[in-house]
Design a protein around this nucleic acid. Structure first.
Lengths: 159, 159
DNA sequence: ATTGAGATGTTATAACATATCAACCCCCGA
DNA sequence: TCGGGGGTTGATATGTTATAACATCTCAAT
């Protein structure tokens, strides 16, 4: 189990690593990592925070990469579809994937104070969930687990 | 663990039971179960399916109970706030609570074919999730677990 | 060169949600 | 009985998120 997002880390490293992984992933799977898609992923990677489609679009627009909603939605859909980003249902927003490659049904920890998002790849709750759902006969295609609360830092501040 | 929503049951019973529980719950907590709020809960109870705010509003409007968005949102917010209904983030829609009273962080099983929704109160995955989150220092305030897939009936049909 | 799949450009609109402020109602205490 | 306060409702306007629909472009494989 790992969490990325809360706590200190060398974030510039974090960005370049993920961009390289994304490049590699697209090459291997013959996906077109076009300028808009690349830029959108960079924007999501810039912070461990979810960005809305229109927030992304705003930046794209300033940079001359497109100005209409479908531009942003298409790029975001591409990233989500290929596992490079996640949609946070709770926020109607998108965050870069923090664990490229690990097969996952991650849980998202959303701090309501600082907006930071952590991604938790927990085996235990996933297998418990699978077991409980299996007994109902439901066949799972997608899982969203989203927790809202306070991150460690904001918990202290609030106290 | 219980699931309500998939499978046969006497649904009219299901509705009257829940309405009575809701009445009681409001009386006990000195909440005003006004006509609009009552009617909205009935609408949600009518099917084990999530309804959008505007779908609810459409009916309210036909019945002369209000025609502007805030009417529906206020009633829905009231029901959610007091545990009589749940918001399904994935669908931007609302479903009646199927387990009034059980303290819960339920999982929702959403059938993408027939739109039916089941509510799963799983102890095991909740405690596993709590344990895994605890180790991160994150303090949980709200949990949303939403699964999209096929219900038992639709799984068979698809096969 | 042609074709076909994927990607992009563009316009319009659908769908979901909230801010604001005035009016009303009900209960309760003076 | 009066008057105030909290909660509820009515009404208008606006903000935010998402998709439909259709035309065009790009590029690689044939």
């Amino acid at each position: 189990m790992t969490t990325i997002g809360f706590g200190q880390h060398d974030h510039s490293h974090c960005i370049t690593d993920m961009m390289q992984s994304a490049e590699a992933h697209c090459r291997e799977n013959q996906l077109r990592f076009t300028p808009v898609r690349r830029r959108v992923l960079e924007l999501l990677l810039a912070e461990h925070r979810a960005k809305g489609a229109y927030e992304v679009l705003q930046t794209l627009s300033e940079e001359g990469l497109g100005s209409q909603p479908p531009v942003a939605y298409r790029a975001l859909d591409f990233l989500v579809k290929h596992g490079l980003a996640h949609r946070i249902e709770r926020l109607n927003a998108y965050a870069a994937c923090a664990h490229l490659g690990t097969s996952h049904a991650p849980a998202f920890l959303i701090c309501r104070a600082c907006q930071l998002i952590a991604e938790l790849d927990g085996e235990d709750f996933n297998s418990a969930l699978d077991a409980e759902v299996a007994s109902t006969g439901f066949s799972i295609e997608r899982i969203a687990v989203e927790l809202v609360g306070l991150c460690p830092t904001c918990t202290e501040t609030a106290a």
